[in-house]
Simulated scan of single mutants.
Amino acid sequence: MDSTEWKIGQYPLHVLVLAANVKGIAVPVYFRIYTHKGVLSEKERIGFIRKSLSVIDLRDKLLIADREFIGKDWFDFLSKNRIDFLIRLRKGIYQQWVDLECKQYEKLQKRALKKAYAQAQFTLEKQPYRLEVYRNENQSEKEPLVYLLTNRLKEKRTGKQYGKRWKIEYCFKHLNEYCFKHLKTNGFNLQQVAFQDTNKIRLLISFVIVAYILAIEQGILQEKQNPVRHIRFANGKKYRSVSIFRDGLQKLKEKLTYLVDFRTYLFKLTPKETTILKIV
């Protein structure tokens, strides 16, 4: 779960998105847009999750989010709806509750710096949580430690899954960098269009997300048929030379030269005819 700030013309907006991790790729399943400035309130976030529950069953799933998604009512709502979460905290947040029960917040930090990990359980508004503290592997001087809060208590070191959250940002990086590039500047000049209708913006983003998902699907299929080469870096890790999204998008461009090609492609994805496909 993440929010990103976009600007179309002079119209700033926030996009709050819930994405599912599919084979290591973040696939958006629900989103809403907000036009006010500043972070979203707990009430807005709770309303967002309530509506998303009609799209996807989040019970016993792990919701991963960043530091802006905090609050006692928010945590309580997620726990009572059987939604496990892993949320990053700022240093010192809820320290008083940790110290009240464990009296070891400072000890946690020292232990994490020395051994790379430390944890403590505490209760907030009658709900049990675990604070996990990790040594920052990025060697950041400003943030030598990463603080994570979770209500998934049976699993050890839930915080190791926090890295998956970045895939959501990566999704919107792709949407901005590739899908919107031509719409913004190369002829359409979308940035100069003064949108005032939220529904139009929502529809536009929906189309772009559909394009992103189609590219991801094509990229996954292409990976099975003709895998791209991987590059090994100095740290020993290997990465794709071309992302699944970019590979899939290129193949879509090659396949879908004309509108009729796109229509045929959609029919293959959804064999049952629908009114929308008939119109296309």
Rank of each mutant, 00 (worst) to 15 (best):
Met1Ala: 03
Asp2Gln: 05
Asp2Arg: 05
Leu16Lys: 04
Asn21Phe: 06
Pro28Met: 02
Tyr34Met: 11
Thr35Pro: 00
Lys43Arg: 14
Gly47Phe: 03
Phe48Ser: 02
Leu53Cys: 13
Val55Trp: 07
Leu58Cys: 01
Ile64Met: 02
Asp66Gln: 02
Asp73Ser: 14
Asp76Ala: 06
Phe77Tyr: 14
Ser79Tyr: 10
Arg82Ser: 15
Ile83Val: 10
Asp84Gly: 06
Asp84Ile: 05
Phe85Ala: 08
Phe85Val: 08
Leu86Gly: 03
Leu86Thr: 05
Leu86Tyr: 02
Leu86Asp: 02
Ile87Arg: 01
Leu89Lys: 06
Arg90Gly: 11
Lys91Cys: 07
Gln96Ala: 09
Leu100Gly: 01
Cys102Phe: 05
Cys102Met: 09
Lys103Asp: 11
Tyr105Pro: 00
Gln109Met: 13
Lys110Thr: 09
Leu113Arg: 14
Tyr117Ser: 09
Ala120His: 07
Arg130Ile: 06
Val133Gly: 03
Arg135Phe: 09
Glu137Asp: 12
Glu137Trp: 08
Glu137Thr: 15
Asn138Gly: 15
Ser140Met: 03
Glu141Leu: 14
Lys142Arg: 12
Pro144Leu: 04
Tyr147Lys: 05
Leu148Pro: 00
Leu149Cys: 02
Asn151Glu: 07
Leu153Ser: 08
Lys154Met: 05
Gly163Leu: 07
Lys164Tyr: 13
Trp166Pro: 00
Lys167Ser: 02
Cys171Ala: 13
His174Phe: 09
Asn176Tyr: 11
Asn176Cys: 04
Tyr178Pro: 00
Cys179Pro: 00
Cys179Gly: 01
Lys181Trp: 15
Lys184Trp: 06
Phe188Ala: 12
Asn189Phe: 13
Gln191Ser: 14
Val193Thr: 14
Val193Phe: 10
Phe195Arg: 06
Phe195Met: 12
Phe195Ser: 01
Asp197Leu: 09
Asn199His: 14
Asn199Glu: 14
Asn199Cys: 02
Asn199Ala: 12
Lys200Asp: 05
Lys200Pro: 00
Leu203Ile: 12
Ser206Cys: 13
Val208Glu: 10
Ile209Ala: 01
Ile209Glu: 07
Ile209Lys: 00
Glu217Thr: 08
Gln218Asp: 07
Gln225His: 11
Asn226Ala: 14
Arg232Gln: 15
Arg240Thr: 03
Arg240Pro: 01
Arg246Val: 06
Asp247Tyr: 06
Asp247Glu: 14
Leu249Arg: 09
Lys251Ser: 10
Leu256Ala: 03
Asp261Glu: 11
Thr264Trp: 13
Lys268Asp: 11
Leu269Tyr: 07
Glu273Trp: 13
